[in-house]
Each structure stands twice: as structure tokens, then as C-alpha cells.
Design a protein around this nucleic acid. Structure first.
Length: 429
DNA sequence: TCTGGGGTCCTAGGACCC
DNA sequence: TCTGGGGTCCTAGGACCC
């Protein structure tokens, strides 16, 4: 959805010499909001904010809403103060995933070298497609036309010699734009921009640079390496200096593998009740387990995140002796980490469960066991649902996908209205 | 009604091994 | 009793990105 760096804009299509510019960055315009407007045409031309919830933030804002100062990641309360007349739509991620897949399919027709960055953005390396489809700028135009005609959505495309410059270019020509940054003009393009245009410079780094009177990309390029290292550290200094020179060694990488899977939840009202906290830990563990198994991966490290009412946040992690894909083991790890905190009457705003240190499930030989894992006695019902063997658990996941999650989720999550034992048993077997 | 949820990467310190 | 350096793994926190 783009960060709200206030960069100068170049609207419309800006064509130029695209020699050597083989990298494209495709960025959907106000993606979630545009999908909602397409679904409800009466919203066209109106300020639309996708987001919500008692403690929610803005996930996406239509350009009409942005005119009021509404930006992504802004608390909803503030957004609505700025734009009281906005239509607020709750996010529908399933719908966005579906449209995203259609966008990515259009990109895949251009080249195999597509690197999705998120649901609404991707890099393409078009060098292999030039002979078949024409110059990079023509390929960009073709993509924009296809997205518009097939999906009734607009996107903006940056074309440049590197990923970083292509991404900047697309952000500067939004919405519904095309911007080619010729190789020879890269430095003229980059140097006037503010430091936070550089990838990796957020509020904290920008403030540190500003204290040294380094405010533009040109300033970064002119700063002696040792000074830059003192301000931002050795690794970031090297990275920023290269970007400021127009150097970006990163390649378009299709098929990047996830390194962690996490689920976290901010509660509308702080949790204080121990049973509530335990139930949420189980729910989050189950969500993570389902996604882990859906990707056919296993994990060695389980972590939790706890955010208190005062926003103080802590994380804890534990690496297991063996790989796991089982909800019961993830949950056992999470509850042990939580118990070890020894909290006394906490007020909890957010809980999270995460697995990392991932590997392919196929690499790990599994013993199918009939034990019920480490679940505590009071959760025997949950153990029966989530502590079963890996193979049975995958079968349960498949049933959940077909018949709905309520058929086979841990019993203690099901509240007062559990499914009949027969249907749950049938779904598992 | 301040401050979501999904991630990645880096740093720094301690344990542990050679 | 005092004291090495290098490498790897693990953990916690923070910055950053969309």
C-alpha cells in the first residue's frame, strides 16, 4: 500500500529512453479500496477507507480520502477526524487475494521472472521478454492496459535499471501512471529526493541523518563513508551509500520462501482473564499450525509476542529439539513461554504466536503417534482435536477447508455450540 | 476511543565448541 | 589463576516494509 513518504509527483505517462531499463515495478493503485469500489460502484468518486475495528488502522484509502490527509497505517480514529464523511469498509482479504492472483497471472504472461512483494506489488525482470514483446516501456504499457481491461483496476508502473529505482518511479507516477527513468538520468532522478525515499530509511534513521544535516539522497551520496557508518551502522551505511549512487545489486527473485509464519491479534478490550488468555494462545497456535501445514513446512522455533495495555511489548522464543508441524506442540511451546513470563494480573492488548526456522515437511520423517501431546488435563478436548498425529492433523485441515473450520478445530475454541461428535469424527476420518 | 497484521533484516550479547 | 580468538547457534529487541 506504499508508505506515506511525501514525495514529489509526476503524473501521467512519462516515456523516455528505456535502454538498459529492464526492471519493472508494478504497483496497484489504492488496491484494497479500488477492489471495494469496483464491487460497489456507488462508492466511485467517494472517499473510501478500508480498515476499521475499535483499535484499527487504515489498510487502504481511496485517492479521494487521501486528499483529506488520510494515509495507510493511520489510526481509524484520526482518519475519521480528518475525513468524517468517508465510507468505511471492513477489509476482505480473501477477495484481495483472489484479485491479486489475477494480477499476478497477467504478469506471469510477460515473464517467469516475477517477484511478488505483497498482494498489490511485484517486480519483473523483463530482459528475457524484450524480443517477444518489445521495449520495456511497451511491456509496461501492455501490462497497464491488460489490468485496466481485464480487471477494471489501475496500476502504476516504474521502469528503470534497478529494482530500487523502478519502485521509486512507480511511487512517483501514481495513480494510473507510467514512469521510465533512463539509465543516464538515474542520478538526476535520485539526488533531489528526501532521504526517506531510500529503501531502509524510516522515521528513526531519517531523524539520525537529519541531526547530521543529511536530508537528501544527494547528501547521503556526498557523506564520507566513516561518517555514514557512525550514524547508521556499517551494514546500513554500505547499503544506503550504494542506493544513493544508483547501485542496487538485488536481483528479481521469483519464488522466495517464507522464513516465518505468525498470527497475532489486538483485542478490542484488553484481556485480563487467564482463561481468555489461554484460549487465545490456543487459537493463535492453531491458526499458525494450519498455515504451516498448508505450506507443507515444519518449524523448529516457537515464539510468542505480548503487548500490554501500555503498549510495552515483549517477545520470547524457544527452539525445539525436533521439527514440528503440530498445533499441540506449537501450543505447548507458546503456553510454556507465556507461563515463564510469570505475569501478575496482566492487561494484555495483543497476543501473537509465531513459528520460524522453517523447513520443508518432506525433509522430515514423521513418527505417527497416537499420543495427545503435551496439552494439560483440562484441555483434553483440545488435545483430542489438535494433538493427534501429523497425518491425521493434515486430514483434519483438509476437512476444515472443505466443510468449514468449525468442524475440526480444537474443541475449546468452539464455545457453547460445538459440532456434533459424529460430524467431527467423520470429518477427521 | 492514538498506535493492525503480515513479514524481513540487523544488532548485540551469551552459550558453547574448537 | 588468568586469559586468547573464531565460529555458530540462540534469543530479544528494534527498525523497516507493505
Amino acid at each position: 500500500m506504499g508508505r506515506s513518504a511525501d514525495l514529489p509527483r509526476r503524473s501521467g505517462e512519462t516515456d523516455g529512453d528505456d535502454t538498459g531499463c529492464h526492471i519493472l515495478h508494478v504497483d496497484m493503485d489504492a488496491f484494497f479500496a479500488s477492489v471495494e469500489v469496483r464491487r460497489r460502484p456507488e462508492l466511485r468518486g467517494q472517499p473510501v477507507i478500508v480498515g476499521g475495528g475499535v483499535r484499527g488502522v487504515v489498510s487502504a484509502a481511496s485517492y479521494e480520502a487521501r486528499r483529506f490527509g488520510v494515509r495507510s497505517a493511520m489510526p481509524m480514529t484520526r482518519a475519521l477526524r480528518l475525513c468524517p464523511g468517508a465510507e468505511v469498509v471492513r477489509p476482505d482479504h480473501a477477495a484481495y487475494r483472489e484479485v491479486s492472483a489475477q494480477v499476478m497471472a497477467i504478469l506471469a504472461e510477460v515473464t517467469d521472472l516475477v517477484e511478488p512483494l505483497s498482494l498489490d506489488e511485484a517486480f519483473l525482470d523483463a530482459s528475457g521478454a524484450v524480443r517477444r514483446l518489445g521495449r520495456p516501456a511497451d511491456i509496461a504499457r501492455r501490462i497497464r492496459a491488460r489490468v485496466a481491461s481485464d480487471l477494471s483496476l489501475t496500476c502504476s508502473v516504474g521502469v528503470a535499471t534497478t529494482k530500487f529505482v523502478a519502485k521509486l518511479a512507480s511511487s512517483l507516477c501514481k495513480p494510473d501512471g507510467l514512469l521510465v527513468v533512463p539509465a543516464a538520468e538515474t542520478l538526476d532522478f535520485l539526488h533531489p529526493l528526501p532521504v526517506n525515499a531510500l529503501w531502509g530509511v524510516g522515521p528513526s534513521t531519517a531523524a539520525a541523518l537529519r541531526r547530521r544535516a543529511i536530508t537528501t539522497v544527494a547528501d547521503v551520496a556526498a557523506t564520507p563513508p566513516d561518517v555514514l557508518r557512525r550514524v547508521v551502522g556499517a551494514s546500513a551505511a554500505e547499503h544506503l551509500a550504494a542506493l544513493a549512487r544508483g547501485d542496487d545489486p538485488s536481483q528479481v527473485e521469483p519464488g522466495r520462501v517464507e522464513k516465518s509464519i505468525s498470527s497475532d491479534r489486538t483485542f478490542e478490550v484488553d484481556l485480563t482473564d487467564s482463561a481468555d488468555i489461554q484460549r487465545e494462545l490456543l487459537r493463535l497456535s492453531d491458526e499458525v499450525g494450519v498455515r504451516l501445514r498448508a505450506r507443507e513446512m515444519v518449524a523448529r522455533t516457537v515464539g510468542i509476542k505480548v503487548r500490554f495495555a501500555d503498549f510495552r511489548t515483549l517477545t520470547r522464543a524457544h527452539t525445539l529439539a525436533d521439527w514440528t508441524e503440530r498445533t499441540a506442540e506449537i501450543h505447548a511451546g507458546a503456553r510454556a513461554l507465556y507461563a515463564a513470563l510469570g505475569l501478575d494480573r496482566p492487561r494484555i492488548r495483543l497476543l501473537g504466536v509465531k513459528v520460524e526456522n522453517l523447513g520443508p515437511a518432506a525433509r522430515v520423517a514423521y513418527q505417527d503417534t497416537l499420543d495427545f501431546g503435551d496439552a494439560a488435563p483440562e484441555e483434553n478436548a483440545s488435545a483430542a482435536a489438535s494433538g493427534r498425529s501429523a497425518a491425521a492433523q493434515r486430514a483434519a485441515d483438509a476437512a476444515a477447508r472443505r466443510f468449514g473450520p468449525e468442524t475440526v478445530r480444537p474443541a475449546s475454541l468452539l464455545g457453547a455450540d460445538p459440532p456434533s461428535p459424529a460430524s467431527a469424527r467423520d470429518a477427521v476420518r
